[in-house]
């Protein structure tokens, strides 16, 4: 065919077209391509001009790093690589201990003076400990409840104490949430002379170890308070609203 066209270079434009068609067929024709495809080509808008190939600098960015997967094939060190984008704002990175922060927030709101925290703080040598007799005053009315502290359940703002007393010869145990707004005051009535060597004094429920009624301790404590303080302070005992004079002050009295 080439020879033919060489013989008649412009003999027939049909021949030229035929050649072009054949060449295209060699390039494009597959089992699935019909020759009619060209008809539709006319309706399809021409493809956009090939955009200038972006340089590698365009792909690279200071923020975007590449994760390279290495290959064991000799002479081809890299199997493939992917762009890995930097991570965004992470609340966990800023606040890894969200629960602690939540506790701190709530305690700040409920215990403005810090008295409740100090009363049960492990760092405070004068803090209340299991085995001490405590008295809890609530705003629900009724008498304040006094009893020996069997355990302190430390859970941030949900911290609670378990008090045990005997009322009318019946053992009574009460849980109090230390930071509850209903608890208006916690006083140390009596300190155990020797510190308990257990954190939870469940054995004190047994008759052999039961303290029984603690009313005599409460009475004694009230009397000493009446001696040293007169007037207003003697009324209902020290409440948790007073800053800075929590455990220490009480002990002195």
């Amino acid at each position: 065919m080439i020879i033919q066209s060489a013989r008649h270079p412009l003999g027939s434009w049909k021949a030229v077209l035929r050649r072009a068609q054949q060449q295209q067929q060699f390039l494009l024709r597959t089992m699935a391509t019909a020759t009619t495809t060209t008809i539709t080509n006319t309706s399809i808008p021409p493809p956009p001009p090939p955009s200038s190939k972006p340089k590698s600098g365009w792909v690279k960015s200071k923020k975007v790093k590449f994760h390279v997967i290495k290959s064991t094939v000799p002479g081809k060190p890299i199997r493939t690589a992917f762009a890995v984008y930097p991570r965004g704002h992470s609340a966990r990175a800023i606040n890894p201990e969200a629960l602690k922060t939540f506790h701190a927030q709530q305690i700040k709101r409920l215990d403005k003076t810090g008295a409740r925290t100090a009363l049960f703080s492990k760092a405070n040598p004068d803090a209340a400990k299991p085995g001490d007799v405590l008295q809890v005053t609530t705003n629900r009315g009724g008498e304040p409840f006094a009893g020996v502290c069997l355990s302190i359940r430390r859970a941030g703002v949900d911290t609670a104490i378990l008090l045990r007393n005997q009322l009318t010869k019946i053992g009574v145990e009460m849980w109090y949430k230390v930071y509850s707004p209903t608890v208006t005051g916690i006083e140390i009535i009596w300190r155990r002379p020797k510190r308990a060597r257990r954190a939870r004094l469940t054995y004190m429920r047994k008759p052999k170890h039961d303290m029984g009624n603690v009313d005599h301790l409460v009475e004694a404590w009230r009397r000493t308070r009446n001696v040293f303080t007169s007037g207003k302070g003697a009324k209902a005992g020290q409440h948790l609203g007073r800053p800075g004079k929590h455990a220490k002050g009480k002990r002195g009295r």
Binding site: K14, L17, R18, A20, Q21, Q24, T35, T36, T38, I39, N41, T42
Partner: peptide, 10 residues
């Protein structure tokens, strides 16, 4: 269409 027409359109 005829081949030549196809070629033209292509």
């Amino acid at each position: 269409p005829a081949r030549w027409a196809t070629a033209l359109t292509s």
